[in-house]
Design a protein around this nucleic acid. Structure first.
Length: 486
DNA sequence: TGGCGCTTTCC
DNA sequence: GAAAGCGCC
């Protein structure tokens, strides 16, 4: 019997732009019914977008890749704009579909509840599947029944739980409906940036889409993972990390697939450390589910009283990579050029914004969201709060990164700095992280004029650190240097 | 997934 | 004089 005459299933793609380990898709295929695949460009609302500029670039290419992958299986990707409930009920009528399958995305639970509620009442059969995380937050509770607020016990609980479920393979065939509904044209969505100087290099670094994700995974498992634990902290090393984060953010690969593929390797400390990073992502989602305002409100409300002070000029210097601290500037310029920043440098640049400039972490969170191709609603928010000290299991506020020492420790030869701050390339290694301490002759020989070809430091780190710690002491009510003998 | 100032220990 | 240890922010 041809499947053409059965009512199709609507398959709603969101941030699960993959065929592999896609629960909703594989179940739809197994039903034997034809499948109508749709991606909806929704108006902004709580829990739903908007994507930042870098991710719009990514989405464009990822949808392109998904459409091609579906075409290979004899199907099509239908693009529609509008409110999801309206688009889906319209499509159901057009195609005579009687069911909607989709995968759960925790950051939009509230929005989905409304959408699904509206559709259910119109008689559509709705099935939800999982795949965004290794473990469902609802099943992960502490002994006393609450949500985990500390990473280590969370990790131990996962270990005790045993291996996550195995991924399911991509369907070999995705039955097409008798006729396809109309699709909007991807180019009409104008997702590619119009700024001529931006995103030109993204395509050299990244290949959005499922095939690109699997290439990155394969490359990483072949070698870099064997020295992951120590190499991951050195931004100058180009092949030390997995670079899977944007693919995970768009669901082009599932965490279960990644985990599963590491099972073929000997469980060395390096492999386990990589798995722990995957679980940090899980932990962030668990925090977000427990505290949906993670991106806008201090998790620890003591920080509500913190005296942030916003300087437009300093914020602008930070975003442009013109702070005068080479490791900070290299990171911010990498972000602009590649839509990405090395993890170690994310911590350094975030610490600089929050503690040296005393700018509210939310400003940094927003900038990263707009410029990172891997911006993730849970990871981005929880990690900014981690650095600020306001988050769950966060780094204490008084742990202030020294941008000079961090640079010297993790980028000892200045390879990373020189890659993104070319005006410092001729400077001897000794001064690469502290050009402002280099003697006049040394700067001259390197062709550097501080304040002209490269900025002088916009703040003095030592003084800035003291100010931040004093503000912190005020907020936490500690007296700082009071001597009880006085 | 720090840093700093201070002291002690090492050579 | 450098390295290592410690308490504190």
């Amino acid at each position: 019997m041809s499947s053409d005459h059965q009512p199709p299933i609507l398959l709603w793609f969101r941030k699960d732009l993959r065929l592999d380990d896609n629960g909703a898709l594989s179940q739809a295929c197994e039903s034997g019914r034809p499948v109508v695949c749709v991606y909806i460009r929704e108006p902004k609302q709580d829990g739903i977008g908007p994507l930042g500029g870098a991710q719009e670039w990514w989405l464009h290419h990822s949808l392109d890749a998904l459409a091609a992958a579906l075409a290979d299986k004899g199907n099509r990707l239908i693009l529609r704009s509008g409110e999801a409930a309206k688009v889906l009920s319209g499509l159901a009528k057009e195609t005579q579909a009687e069911a909607l399958f989709y995968n759960r995305h925790y950051e939009r639970d509230a929005a989905d509840k409304d959408i699904v509620g509206a559709l259910k009442s119109s008689g559509l059969e709705i099935k939800r599947f999982r795949g965004q995380l290794l473990h469902d937050p609802e099943t992960m509770k502490t002994g006393s029944g609450g949500a985990y607020r500390v990473y280590s016990p969370f990790w131990r609980a996962l270990e005790k739980d045993g291996e996550p479920r195995d991924p399911v393979s991509a369907p070999s065939k995705i039955a097409a409906p008798g006729s396809f509904p109309k699709s909007e044209a991807l180019k009409d969505w104008s997702l590619l940036p119009t700024k001529p100087d931006w995103a030109t290099e993204f395509g050299r670094i990244w290949q959005p889409g499922e095939a690109g994700a699997h290439k990155k995974l394969k490359r990483f498992l072949k070698k870099p993972i064997q020295t992951y634990k120590s190499d991951r902290d050195h931004p100058g090393l180009e092949d030390a990390t997995s670079l899977l984060s944007p693919h995970l953010a768009f669901g082009e690969i599932s965490p279960a697939r990644i985990w599963h593929e590491t099972k073929g390797l000997e469980a060395t400390n390096d492999v386990i450390h990589f798995r722990k990073e995957l679980v940090w992502r899980e932990f962030s989602y668990h925090l977000l589910v427990e505290f949906p305002k993670l991106a806008t409100d201090n998790w620890n409300d003591k920080f509500d009283a913190f005296p942030w002070h916003f300087s437009k000029a300093q914020f602008s210097a930070w975003t442009k990579g013109m702070t005068g601290y080479p490791i900070v500037d290299a990171g911010m310029r990498q972000l602009w050029r590649h839509g990405y920043m090395h993890n170690r440098v994310r911590m350094i640049t975030a610490s600089f914004l929050i503690k040296d400039l005393m700018i509210d972490w939310r400003k940094g969170e927003e900038w990263f969201k707009d410029t990172l191709v891997d911006a993730d609603p849970a990871s981005n928010a929880s990690n900014w709060q981690w650095v600020a000290g306001s988050g769950a299991d966060a780094s204490p506020f008084f742990r202030v990164f020294n941008p000079i020492l961090q640079g010297e420790k993790f980028d000892p030869d200045g390879d990373y700095v020189c890659r993104f701050v070319p005006e410092l390339r001729k400077l001897p290694k000794k001064y690469i992280h502290r050009p402002f301490e280099a003697p006049k002759e040394v700067l001259e020989r390197a062709g550097i004029k501080l304040g002209e070809t490269y900025p002088k430091p916009i703040v003095n780190h030592g003084e800035a650190r003291d100010k931040a710690l004093a503000a912190y002491a005020d907020v936490t009510g500690r007296s700082g240097d009071a001597d009880p003998r006085d």
